[in-house]
Design a protein around this nucleic acid. Sequence first.
DNA 1: CGCTTTTGACCTGCGC
DNA 2: GCGCAGGTCAAAAGCG
Length: 150
Amino acid sequence: MSSDNNNFKPLDSPDSDFGNQSGFEFSEYLKFDDELLDEDDPASVFPWSVQNPTYQANDVVDKVACSGREKKEVKERFVFKTKSEVEILDDGLMWKKYGKKKVKNNPNPRNYYRYSVDGCPVKNRVERDREDQRYAITTYEGNHTHQSSY
DNA sequence: CGCTTTTGACCTGCGC
DNA sequence: GCGCAGGTCAAAAGCG
């Protein structure tokens, strides 16, 4: 953990499962960006990375973490609203779409993604903004347990 | 041939 | 108790 990355910790989980290890390290995303940026032109390869929520918090319209119900286990939920035309955020992982549903609150369909690798209970829900379709609301659900296959 | 993706139907939960 | 919404799983098709 560096120092200035902690300012991007919106979670206030009282006793989450990863409370002691911070589980979801935003620094990892920053690392991804750093590598991607160093790899090639991020705007060409990963246009979203340029506006990465973890990269530019000011672009993040809304960010929520750990908003689980008390009826069930506290699930880690990270909601990032970013300005990207693609709903799949390139975090270096392979996401498999497992369902699409049209919500009534949104004229646009909601996409459900799951980690292609078995063993990672990571789920990803992507929805488009109801008023601004250019804004994508990415909701990461589950532990960031995937190994650094990057 | 394997894997990913797509659509539909079904199920569960919550609200009223 | 019923209805509505959301979420998940399943099967099939297409593509690499």
